[in-house]
Each structure stands twice: as C-alpha cells, then as structure tokens.
Design a binder for these strands. Structure first.
Lengths: 326, 326
DNA sequence: ATGAAAGCGCTAACAC
DNA sequence: GTGTTAGCGCTTTCAT
C-alpha cells in the first residue's frame, strides 16, 4: 500500500514536450496566451504521464491555498451538518477544499481552531461563532489575517456576514397561529449567548406586542435537549395553563415539548413549532423553520471570490408547516 | 480587514538572533541537539516577533502536510457527525488538521473527493465507503498513493480498517428480547450496499437460527427515512401480525416504526430498537446501539502514526437499552 | 553545535 | 508566444 510512487512533476512534462516549465505552467493554469498547438501537446503529455500539479508548490508561490476554513460551533447540533454540506458543495463548485473545525461550543477551542486555520493560510474563513461575546476577540484577530465571514450566527455587524432572517419566520408562524385562532402563545428560547436564538426571541417579543398587546409575555429558556424542552413545557403550562401554542428556538426543544404534551403528532390543542428543520422535524411532523443554507453558502463563497471586506447579507427563511401547528 | 500583515519568516528570526536559519529551524522542530542557551534565545525571539512557521514551506520540504483526509458518505446521516467529531478531536490531539469531504452517498463524488485529497498530499485518508462494491476501485487507487484506512464501513478486508462490531450488539438485543419473553422478532434493514447494514442483518439471521430455530425470518428493507420505516412496519405487521419485536438497522427507521405502532415511547407490545444512538434515540427513548466512535478514531489515528499498511481492528459496540424495549 | 548552500514544485518577472 | 531566472519558506545534507 501507499509509499510514494514518485510523483510526476512539471519538469518531466517540460522535458517530455521539449518545452520550458513556464510554458507548461501557462498551459495548465491558463495564465497567459499559448499557441493552441503547443497547448495541445502539453495537455497530451500531462495526461499521458499522469501529471497532477502539486498544490503545495503552487501555494508556496501564489500565496493561495484554494482552501477554505469553516468553523462551526458543534457538529452534533443537527443544524450544522446542513451548513457543512452546503458549504462543501458550494466550495467544490469553485474548486476549493474545506478545512472544517468544530469548536465544541467552546470559545477557547474556537480561538485555537481559528489560529490553526490562519496558520495554514486558508484563503478565507467562514465561521458561525459559538458565543455572542466570548467569540469576539478571536474573530477580530482572525479577520486581521484573513478574509473572514460570519455565517448564520452574527456577533460583529462590522465584519462581513451572511445570515438568514430570523424574525420573518417567527412572524409567519405567529400569523399562522393567529389565523388558526390561537392567541396565548409562548416561546422557549436557548441560551442568550447564541445570536440566532436571541434574534428569534426578540422577534417573538415584538410580535406579541403587535398582535396580542394584552397578552403576558410567556417566555422561558431551555438547553439543547429534548428533556430540557420537556421541563420548559412543564414550566409554561404551570405558569400559564391557558397557553395554546409554543414556539421553540430549535427542534430538539420542540420534540421535548411534543413529548410532554402527549406524544403523537396530530391535530392538537397546543400548537408547536421548532427551528432548523432537522430530521427530527421531518420525522415527527413538526412545523419548523428551514434556513436557506445552500443560498447562504453560495452568497458567502461569492463574497470570498469578490474579496469583499464589507457585506451584510440576509436571506429569507422558510417555514415548513406540518401537523404540529394544524 | 485582512490583507496580509507581512508574515514573519524564519529568516527574520535568524537575523534577529544573529543565528542561521538552520539553527532556528532546529530549535523550533527539535530536529537536532542545540545548545540550551541558543535555544532559549531563539524561542524568545520567535515569541517576540510573533513567528509562526509556515506549513506550506514546511510541507514542500518535508512532504508531510500534517493533514488528514476524512471521507464520509453523508453528513446528513446523523451517525457521521459523531464520527467527524471524534476524528477531529483525535486529530487535533496529534497536531493534525482534517480535510472533510462528503460523498453525498455517491460513489462518483467519492472518487472525486479521494482524488482531491490525494492531490493535496494529505498524510492519510480515513474513509467510510459509500458503497459496498462501487466504492472499491477508487479506494484501491487511493490506497496506492496514500495510507488509507477504512473507518466504520469496511468493503475491502485486505486494506487496513477500524470498525465496530456489528454482530455483538444485535446479539445483545436478541438476548434481551428473549429474556423479556419476545420471540417473534423482525428486522428492518437498509440498502444492501452498505457494509454495516449488511452485517447487522446477517447477525440477525444467524441469531434467529440459533435462538428461535422454528421462527420464520421476518426481514424487510427500508430507506433512510422515518416514512420508509413506517411503510416497512406496515409490511411486517401485515405479513407477520404476531411480531412482538422489531430491530431496525438505524434510528430513523426505528422512529418510523415507533410512529406507525402508535407514537408515545412507553412500555409497549412491540419492542423496538434502532442503531447509532443518534439524538433521535435519545429524544424518543429508543433503545439503540452506540458505536465507540472515540476509540475508533483513536485507533485509526494510531494506525496512521504507525504507518500501518495492514490492520484489522474491531471494537465493541454498546447497546443503550431504553424504554422502547422494556 | 552551528552555518552555508541546495532544493522541494511551482509561477511570475523579465527578457527576447 | 516562449524561455531564463529567481524565489516563495522551509528543512536538510554537508561541511566545519
């Protein structure tokens, strides 16, 4: 197995064709005009010899690595695989590879990951910061060294970002609930250190004021687990037994609520919605919000290509209505 | 933002200390004996100047990239984030970065991904092959160029692999079911192109023969979705209405079965088990099999470090018994 | 124990 | 349009 079958270098192609390495390079990178006949000769030879340009040599010279760094807060959070897949795909389209780093929800690990990526001279960094405040310094530092784009979560509006609208979908859900005659809405948020979750909660508060001005603000907090969602649901129902709809900041919480309120997805007393449209939502017929990860990834990579140093892009999210809010 | 704040090179450290670049290099890589006093001087200077060795230059010289390629069949399959996390962690411990490629369940994409990784001269490739047969050639080809280790899924026993025992946990489940007086067991498998799924099914067949020789073989197939699990459950119950336990090849299928048999997790007529211990299982109190991803990743990276060209490592899986098999 | 010099594979200035 | 030359940043002979 393995053990270097002596790679073909550009020099061998040059020798084989009787041309200079520069010419070969030009043909293969398309950097400058080359006579079609020579070009053909080079391509044939390269093909025949099985030449594949060494990215290391190239990078050393060009200062590009054709590699993107992607820092996510937590691979196990089922939203981020969606993002990873979208970024990978968009990057591949553009001939870029992706170095993925998982911060494990830990700002220190995140800082270390950023440093590694910068050291490795990735062409750009896409990051969904772990923490609303604690991620800040590392982010700023990285941005000094390499084009850095916030993706999904945004903690520094001065730096370029691509995110999904978080308020819009909450509004769509609230309107839908209103249309189906619910008005005693509650909200279960996540930790207040997560930018998207905060935005979801703010939207809820604003919308309650606008749509149901007399109603109390039924808001509690839960962690990233179904059990914690169950507990939150109990809290809500004991504080506000009249509640007839619960909007959750993510699907996992919503699943907990679903369990607490009596398993089976079906037309129900209390409407429930989640966030992120994970396989949980699909499996359990839970209304949820799907962020446009593909378009987000695309937009982010366009920013990279354009070397944008400023950008504020917000894309629309989509609510997938299912049985749980019927 | 960004735009190269002129990186500090090894030459500047050399100049600053009045030493040669070789000596600086030796201190920083620990390649050879250096007088402690000089070493200290170098380290101080490097620290002060903010020197960070450029991995590109280093790689060009050493032919190492300190980077690992990881090819997974599908990021959206909730098992693989577990594997990604474990590999990332184990790699970081050893100072390696990880290039992740998602094959999207497509052998062609997988072949392309492998080629990219080889081109980039990753030090080793870890791969969980998409397809039992269609992944073969690309795997063989990659293994010629770079140490390649099969992780989790195994399609070529001649090449090094690290996997989890698939038969053991099925046996543990069958025994547990037998102990709780079930004997009319059924199995729902996945596509027969996935190595692990095939192994799970074979184990089931063997165990039925051993434990319940008179019973018919109740086996059907489902895709990677809850809906398809529901359909499979219907098939089973119409063909063999006496069925009192269903073992599923993954959690998503099990969730479908759970729904079909009447939502709520609880002590039930028909016991249900899944595979992979994903958040679905945890959220829905589903008995499931947890593969030892951390130990698998560790073992794989040990093989990489040892430059093993042959290895067959199988680790024990663990069944997490929950409400669904009570 | 340290230094000088070569060179990994590639592309970009600069000639012509 | 093509060739010559230099050099990206590093490690590693080969000297001393």
């Amino acid at each position: 197995m393995s053990d270097a079958p002596a790679r073909v270098t550009i020099r061998e192609v040059a020798r084989d064709t009787g041309l200079s390495t520069s010419t070969v390079s030009r043909v293969l990178t398309g950097a400058r005009a080359v006579s079609p006949e020579v070009a053909e000769r080079v391509r044939e030879s390269a093909e025949r010899l099985g030449y594949r340009a060494d990215p290391i040599g190239r990078s050393l010279r060009t200062r590009r690595t054709d590699t993107l760094g992607l820092v996510i807060p937590d691979v196990m959070n089922p939203f981020f695989p969606q993002l990873v897949q979208a970024v990978e795909y968009a990057a591949r389209q553009r001939g870029l590879a992706v170095l993925i780093a998982d911060a494990s929800n830990d700002p220190e690990a995140e800082r270390a990951a950023l440093r590694t990526l910068v050291d490795r001279r990735v062409d750009a960094v896409l990051i969904s910061p772990t923490h609303l405040t604690a991620s800040r310094d590392a982010l700023t530092e990285a941005a000094k060294a390499v084009p850095t784009i916030q993706l999904d979560r945004v903690i520094d509006p001065e730096l370029p970002f691509v995110r999904a609208d978080q308020g819009g979908p909450v509004e769509a859900i609230v309107r839908h609930l209103e249309a189906t005659k619910r008005r005693r809405l509650a909200f279960i948020g996540q930790r207040i250190t997560i930018s998207t979750s905060v935005e979801r909660e703010r939207a809820f508060q604003r919308l309650m004021g606008e749509h149901f001005p007399g109603e109390p603000l039924r808001v509690v907090t839960a962690g990233m687990s179904a059990d914690s969602g169950r507990a939150a649901a109990r809290d809500i129902l004991s504080s506000w037994p009249e509640t007839d709809a619960i909007i959750c900041a993510n699907d996992l919480i919503a699943v907990g609520v679903l369990q607490e309120l009596g398993g089976r997805a079906a037309r129900r007393e209390v409407a429930i919605s989640g966030f992120d449209d994970t396989l949980l939502a699909r499996a359990l017929h839970l209304t949820s919000v799907r962020q446009p990860v593909e378009r987000m990834a695309d937009a982010a990579l366009d920013l990279v290509a354009a070397r944008a140093t400023q950008a504020a892009i917000e894309l629309d999210s989509e609510v997938i209505f299912r049985l749980s809010t019927t």
